[in-house]
Nucleic acid binder design. Structure first.
Lengths: 235, 235
DNA sequence: CGGGTGGTTGACGCTAGTCAAGTAGCGTGG
DNA sequence: CCACGCTACTTGACTAGCGTCAACCACCCG
């Protein structure tokens, strides 16, 4: 099943591309938790994250669903990037905007964007394999903070786009352990959580210091290269 | 980086382009354990594995070296594929032949080959995050067997190109644990090891059954035969 | 206001990490 | 050829961290 329900008809802008023709470029407005299957032999289709946050997951042979990558604005992904596991799909972690297109139509190589994701996946594998649970969690939080956070009066603030289970799953922990780890960070005063899915890091430096990979993540996030594909759609 | 030409000059496929000029295409013959640094901002240089087995590793902030990928013939890699970690390098796990070139010179996109490695890295992350130590080890052994092994009188046979530490490192285990796990497989009769770096799987089916990802690995190795045969996905 | 889902927390067991001692394989030099 | 010593590997005893199970809580939706 492609898309459950597309965006509310009257909501934000409808770009002209998808107005008149059966255009190869379609802009998808996803609500939180909405899913897109990318299962089939659809190797040519490319999804570009324009806004929001999207997970790429698949089912493992043990029946569990595994979150392979977390995608942020500027990332692009295709089925060819994922292992041949069943039920590969994109899931909007928060309200997101995707652009679906084909390689030919944007004059891009089928592999565009893959090196960046490969570097991220390799670093993620290193995190899972080499860091303690707490460090892994910190690494994910830092990654989310760098991509989606902003400075605010109380401290550096960001939303958690993933549920506890998804985070656990992405980090190779189980949800119980993950919950305990978050509680511990809270108890130590390193983060505050006004609601379950909002995090405030009062002391951002101390927060960054929790993850051995924070510096590396900063280098991966900041380069100007990040911005060049972003056709930021102002609201 | 010095190159030791220890292979016969008339190596089959190609005329010796690397003979006279400072050509953009250079064929590197590596002895086991030989290293190539790919540290610098050498984003344009591409390495293609022609024969053998090569690891891609980097140093983590904790000072440890981490094996991010194991590369087999047909894989290509560039510095742009790796996270910005220090001391990134290729290491020949066994006598290997690499082709070093630049993207322009082969008319390839800078990203060629990245999707394949991304799929492998994502699967590897899943293995590290979700499987038990024994299953992780089995997954690596299966991967090596599929890439480098062959049927022989005593059973399916392959060399271990990686040292115990490298294997442990790649799998997110420590060398002691890894050694114990290998001993256990040996004790159960699932593998035999005439020498330390040679493995024989008498019953290849039983051997494959050790890894929950064996089916997926088989599909990734033999792209032609992928089809969409959904193999047993136990629930 | 009640049921359901997702999150939190405690008690306990098991897997894998740590430390340390011992062994096998291999290159070097006599 | 053997003796030597180095390194990689193996194995045991102990520990710590994470997983499992279960009870409980908080929020959401009707």
């Amino acid at each position: 099943m492609p898309v459950h329900r597309n965006s509310r008809p009257g909501s934000r802008k409808r770009p002209p591309q998808c107005a008149g023709q059966p255009a190869p470029i379609v802009r998808l407005h996803l609500r939180a938790r909405q899913l897109i299957a990318i299962d089939a032999g659809d190797e040519d289709t490319l999804y570009l994250v324009e806004r929001g946050c999207v997970t790429l997951s698949a089912r493992l042979p043990d029946g569990e669903r595994h979150v392979m990558l977390v995608l942020y604005p500027g990332d692009m992904v295709s089925r060819a990037f994922t292992p041949p596991l069943p039920e590969a799909r994109l899931g909007a972690a928060m309200p997101s905007v995707l652009v679906r297109t084909r390689f030919d139509d944007i004059g891009a190589s089928p592999a565009s964007g893959a090196p960046r994701l490969l570097a991220r996946a390799a670093l993620h594998a290193a995190a899972i394999g080499r860091l303690s649970g707490e460090e892994r969690l910190a690494t994910l939080l830092v990654e989310i903070a760098l991509h989606l956070g902003h400075s605010a009066p109380g401290g550096y603030t960001f939303e958690l786009p993933l549920s506890r289970s998804e985070m656990a799953d992405y980090l190779g922990l189980n949800p119980d352990t993950l919950s305990r780890l978050m509680s511990r960070l809270r108890a130590r005063g390193l983060i505050a959580m006004p609601t379950r899915d909002r995090v405030i890091a009062r002391d951002f430096e101390a927060f960054l210091a929790l993850s051995p990979l924070a510096v590396t993540l900063q280098r991966m996030c900041s380069p100007a290269a990040t911005a060049d594909r972003e056709e930021s759609v102002p609201d």
